[in-house]
Design a protein around this nucleic acid. Sequence first.
DNA 1: TTGTACGCGTTATCAA
DNA 2: TTGATAACGCGTACAA
Lengths: 338, 338
Amino acid sequence: MESITVYDIAREANVSVATVSRVLNDTAPVRTSTRLKIMAIIEKHKFQPNALARSLVNKKTGMIGVLFPDSTNMFFPEVFGGAERAAQKLGYTLFLCNTFSNCSRESEYLNSLCERQVEGLIFMGGRINAQHCPDALVQEVVDIQKKIPIVLINGSLPGHPCYRVKTDEYLGTQLIMQHLIDRGHRSIGFLGGTAETTTTLEKLQAYKRTLSANNLSYRKEWVRLGDFSMSCGSTLMQQLLTLPNRPTAVICINDYVAIGAMKAAISQGMHIPEDIAVAGFDDTQLASAMNPELTTVSQHSEQLGRQAVSILSQLIQKEKVKKLTVLEPKLIVRQSTQ
Amino acid sequence: MESITVYDIAREANVSVATVSRVLNDTAPVRTSTRLKIMAIIEKHKFQPNALARSLVNKKTGMIGVLFPDSTNMFFPEVFGGAERAAQKLGYTLFLCNTFSNCSRESEYLNSLCERQVEGLIFMGGRINAQHCPDALVQEVVDIQKKIPIVLINGSLPGHPCYRVKTDEYLGTQLIMQHLIDRGHRSIGFLGGTAETTTTLEKLQAYKRTLSANNLSYRKEWVRLGDFSMSCGSTLMQQLLTLPNRPTAVICINDYVAIGAMKAAISQGMHIPEDIAVAGFDDTQLASAMNPELTTVSQHSEQLGRQAVSILSQLIQKEKVKKLTVLEPKLIVRQSTQ
DNA sequence: TTGTACGCGTTATCAA
DNA sequence: TTGATAACGCGTACAA
């Protein structure tokens, strides 16, 4: 299985490797007859130039690394679906890495991607959403940033300026809250997320402020954190339902938690939205698949991915780009709240 | 942004590059004092060896390419989630490529991955499920297979032996059919998929044979193909409901179609499963998220991914592996059929 | 224990 | 229009 090289092609065509290289990249004129001869031999052997060697001299790999926390949370596949399309148009290839929200795996991938000479990096989840991120982990990213451009999606590196693309999650939460309030809800709960993630805290803050701006009382027993999973949603809703004084509506950290919550309520014989209204976040396919369909907030996930790639591409070309790109969320009203 | 090399490290440490290389890979004894000195300098500069150059001499990249058709169909993220875990344990890194079910994109990625010297390839979707796959496309894969090991998941290359991992979709369909028949259904429809994909035909055949084995009549107006999407499921169910003589149950090509079908039925005021039973396929998270929860067949998606990686790893090590690995599907009975 | 020098498969520079 | 040949950054015999 000896892999065939430009030398083999050159020898068989009675030319030098330089000439072969020229027809490969057409980087200089080659006499048509020899070009044809060489192309025939290349075709005959199905010769494929070694991208490793090529990149070694070019100093270009055409690769963009993407770190994401969880392939089974639909939000992320949607983001990198959009990113992949954008990358392809620009001639880049994505190197997708599932970190499973594990910091040490993040570090491993970060290193591995750098060593593999990716030209840019997109970072989602994990440490860039951590409320208290160890300095070492932050520094790791900062150091890499000195060598290759990085774009953070929905996150930040406390104390360090970064290129970032994000949805205005604060506004998104406000939109949902206002929608519920407009529909007459006066007691609204908050379900899911963890106090360790910045996105949770941002939403929580929007939740609290919107409550007080509307002279509605904040009750801590109506705010229940946990994680971002369906099962968490179910558990938290069950807890909520045992309360003597329960809210008439809940907003959830994401669609998964919302669905879990809905299921728990339904299994208790409740009706949605009559007995309790439920809202999610992200507008994943799950939201429209549900019955009743879930009211949620769209983050424009594909666009998030596209933007990140676009910015990265500009950065790679040494163009000036503004540090922060904020996408406006969109309220998607469906059956679960009306 | 001059990238730093082993030469820089060597110079600063007053040693040769060979010695630096030795501490990097500890491939030969190095005096502790000089090792420490070198390591300090490496750490100081955050030196990361260039994997391109390294792989060029090693002839090992540690990469496994993965082609999948659609990141927004939960089944695939589940598969490569399992694959990623397995790969990591074995020291491989997955190179995930979203082909969007587009044959020319498949070809591009196939080439790109080969040139990038992946050590193995996992192929899902697209041409390996095509009923009539153009010879050129088949040949393309066959040619690559001569150079690097390939594992097909739930597909095949007509006329060419391949390493394959698959779920017994025929059996899976039988399980669902038998379940419905056992519950008293005598008129059962089939929704979704396309006549161009082998998996659809395999399921269709199981459907027909199970019908006749149970002396149930096959009615072609109860079999409606389309594609694999939720919206298709809705459309097909609507068509079915306009029929004067409609089935009491439908099996669907996958969970997405099933959910679309359920939604359409529900929006017509029907109850599931009382008015019509609906079953899906794949057991994606969607199935258990739905209300009512969806009866479906588990393909053990993560295990499919794990197995593929495991086989590839053996193949890379030149070990003998059996060509075909069949995973037994599992019927998951939920509310939508009882 | 350490250093020299060559090879990995390309591209690019400079002559011819 | 073509051909030597020097990089690219690293690993590794072979020698010392």
